[in-house]
């Protein structure tokens, strides 16, 4: 594993002209994600947030099984990689042992909403003071594009070759809405990274959640990021983002689903 704290430095620019740089918490290891995939943006956003809040020395991340399994190659903080579906149980173990640390988990839809459903529900039910990032792209990307619990009706995947059929495969699982109904969740929001504006909103949600945890927290902060999978969806990056806007967001509506009264103010 090669991790470097060095950012990208452009020799042909004066330092004073620099308006954009990689955060120190985000390594310069080449990302393995497919072109146009939302994971790289989301990886970077959480590390930008950690750096801006100056909590890189007390933050511990939990990487999942799936496309983002190598998140610890890019995140320059202490991290644990969890077994498939178990990220929130691992995060619970860390947070309970080290309650003054900032802990986040990072999981996809297969991980969080299929094999790890029990851990997800019960971590929220206990009201663990952690941030759970849920990247929902409606497909098992890493294993070659199989149907996931959040795949929409009619979607063609390698295991639903005729499109998802509710009679055979059941319905897309809206686990975020379930979580919003639970007393253990403090803040539940659904965001995306398909546009510059969406990226800004997602980062704001991350900052809000991390600050809340720094203040002691009173439950799980849960951010679903509805994202794309150009390779798995057999689309170009542009097409995949259009597909998000034209189809997916109609089913998975963006916006805050649950906020504690305190969080509605500007104090956090």
């Amino acid at each position: 594993m090669s991790i470097s704290q060095e950012g990208i430095h452009c020799n042909y620019l004066n330092e004073m002209d620099l308006v954009w740089d990689r955060p120190d918490t985000f390594t310069d290891t080449t990302l393995h994600y497919c072109p146009g995939c939302g994971h790289s943006v989301i990886n970077r956003l959480i590390m930008e947030s950690v750096q801006e809040l100056n909590i890189e020395e007390k933050t511990i991340g939990v990487a999942p099984v799936g496309c983002s399994v190598f998140a610890y190659h890019y995140m320059f903080i202490d991290m644990q990689e969890a077994a498939h579906g178990r990220a929130s149980a691992v995060a619970t173990g860390i947070k309970r042992i080290l309650p003054d640390r900032i802990v986040f988990s990072y999981q996809g839809d297969g991980d969080l909403a299929a094999i790890g459903t029990a851990e997800t529900i019960h971590t929220v039910n206990r009201g663990e003071n952690i941030l759970m990032l849920f990247i929902n792209n409606g497909i098992y990307g890493m294993t070659g594009g199989q149907m996931s619990p959040t795949t929409l009706k009619g979607s063609i995947t390698s295991t639903s070759p005729d499109g998802r059929d509710y009679n055979q495969h059941g319905y897309p699982l809206d686990i975020t809405k379930i979580i919003a109904q639970m007393p253990g969740s403090a803040y539940v929001t659904r965001q995306s990274v398909d546009s510059a504006n969406a990226v800004r909103k997602t980062k704001k949600a991350m900052m809000k959640s991390l600050k809340y945890q720094m203040d002691g927290g009173r439950g799980v902060c849960f951010i679903e990021i509805v994202s794309n999978c150009p390779s798995g969806w057999k689309m170009t990056p542009t097409e995949s983002n259009e597909w998000l806007r034209n189809e997916i967001f109609n089913h998975y509506e963006l916006g805050d689903i649950k906020q504690l009264p305190k969080l509605k103010t500007n104090e956090i």
Binding site: R86, A89, V90, I94, I97, I121, H122
Partner: peptide, 21 residues
């Protein structure tokens, strides 16, 4: 910390996270 987990699967993964500390 004493924590009653939702299953043995969760319990052993909590042990993983905590032992990792």
């Amino acid at each position: 910390v004493f924590l009653q987990a939702e299953s043995e699967v969760a319990a052993i993964n909590m042990v993983y996270g905590a032992a990792g500390c």
